[in-house]
Each structure stands twice: as C-alpha cells, then as structure tokens.
C-alpha cells in the first residue's frame, strides 16, 4: 500500500470527544480528552505513569466505557477493525506460533485452512516464517513480541493499539523492532496508536505525538513530527531528530510540572 496522505489531508477514523473516565467515583484517570485519529496516522501517547494513556487505549479498544464524552468511529469503521498489542507478548503457551497468530480468525469461526495464507503472510511480515511450529517458550523476548505483532496484523485491522509493547525489551532489540514496525506499517497501511514513556521512541516512530500529564490524566500538547517515512538509522542521528526530541522532552517536562 502507498504511503499515507500528508498530515492534514487524511480522513478521520475515530473521534474522541471530551472523554472522561472516573474510577470508584473519585479517581479521575482521564479528563476531557479530545482526539481525532486519522487514517494512516502514527500517534504516540507520551507521558509519565498515571497520565491515563493506557486508560485511553482501553477506552478505544472498548474494554471499558467512558464515564463522560463519546468515542465515535468514522467512515463505516467499527471496533472489529482494531487489534491490540500489549506490553507482554500475551501468547497462549500451549499453542504453536502459527496457532497463536490464527487466534483472531479462529474466534471469528474461520478454520486454519481458510486463513493459512494470511497467517503465513503475517509471520513473513515479522520475519518468523520459519517458526510456525515453535512454541512460545522456545522464542526470545523479541521474537515473542514479533508473534504478538503478527497476531495483531493478521486480520489487516484499520487500527492497531500498542501499549508500551517494547518497554520490557533490551535497547538493541527495541531499535530493531522500531525499524521493523515502521516498515510493517508502511506495507499494510494501517493506523497506529502507540503508548510509550520514551521520548526517543515516540519521535522516531510517530508523525503525531500527544503529550499527556497526570493527576488528572489529560492532554497537554500535541506535537507534529513532519520528517518523511521511511525513516531509518540516518534519521536517528539527524539534527532534525534531535530537534524533535528536544521539543518533545520540553513538552514532557511541562507535563511533569503541571502534575
């Protein structure tokens, strides 16, 4: 699929309007968050712990519901068009890699034979086509995460939600997965919302960074990273990258002080 339309010319996929989530009647996890997600966006939710970024993700995923405000899907999309990647690989240990990737289809009543090609294609995308018959315990942390991403990609969802997926990995694996993630997104042309607390990761990956503050969780600022895709190792060492990192860092600082 071609590169997404330039920022500002993309059609809306999802609208969050003044969304507030309160737990136990008095803990405000998220306060008045408004965000329009466009098709092809790579949005990072960046902020300190407790800023409601994971809460926002759960609300979008439909795992909980807003106390106030609305979340609306646009253009005929709905919540069956999304997939989630958690911080843990969250694989079924009793199932092989291929069976794990098959799961989203299996739950929709498709036999393995029907979707075999899709499963293999998803595994090829994450570079694990030779590991279909392996069990998760035989894989390294980074490879497990790749399986988890393949499971998210396999249904070709419009929107992929990622909740600090690489936080538990070492720096080298993380860099590699960041590079590969951009490549995969480019190939299948989906929209990504990526929760992270790493400034560098958010700048490298996204074209929109939503900076959030804690107590109560809320949006402080939205930054745009206009560097073109594909981005590679050169981008990581460019002045442009450094400039965006500084801007994001400053915004994050403000967010911490505002809390």
């Amino acid at each position: 699929m071609a590169a997404p339309a330039p920022l500002g010319q993309r059609s809306a996929l999802l609208d969050m309007r003044h969304v507030t989530k309160t737990f136990n009647g008095d803990v405000v996890a998220l306060h008045g968050m408004s965000l329009t997600v466009n098709e092809g966006d790579f949005i990072s939710l960046l902020g300190p712990s407790g800023c409601g970024k994971s809460t926002a993700l759960r609300l979008i995923a439909g795992l909980s519901h807003p106390s106030q405000g609305r979340i609306e899907w646009q253009g005929g999309a709905d919540d069956t068009d999304l997939a989630v990647v958690f911080q843990e690989p969250t694989l079924m240990p009793w199932a092989t890699v291929a069976q794990n990737v098959w799961l989203p289809f299996r739950l929709r009543g498709k036999s393995y034979e029907q979707v075999k090609d899709d499963v293999l294609e998803a595994l090829r995308l994450v570079g694990l086509e030779n590991f279909q018959r392996s069990y998760p315990r035989e894989l390294s942390g980074g490879m497990k995460m790749r399986v988890s991403i393949a499971r998210a990609l396999v249904t070709r969802p419009k929107l992929i939600l990622m909740d600090e997926p690489f936080a538990a990995l070492d720096e080298i694996t993380r860099h590699k997965l960041n590079n590969d993630l951009l490549e995969m997104k480019q190939k299948i042309g989906c929209t990504v919302i990526f929760v992270t607390h790493s400034v560098f990761e958010s700048v490298f990956l996204s074209d929109r960074i939503v900076v959030m503050a804690a107590r109560p969780g809320r949006v402080i600022e939205e930054l745009t990273v206009d560097a073109p895709y594909p981005r590679d190792e050169d981008f990581r060492t460019s002045a442009d990258y450094a400039g965006h990192c500084r801007a994001a860092s400053d915004a994050l600082h403000q967010a911490m002080e505002a809390a």
């Binding site: 069956t80 999304l82 958690f86 989203p104 739950l107």
Partner: peptide, 13 residues
C-alpha cells in the same frame, strides 16, 4: 492471563 482475556473480548469471543 488477564491480557489474553482482554484479547478474547476484543475479538468478540
């Protein structure tokens, strides 16, 4: 695993 439970919910199991 509670994440797997969530995943099953997301896929409408």
């Amino acid at each position: 695993d509670h994440n797997l439970r969530d995943l099953f919910r997301i896929y409408g199991a």
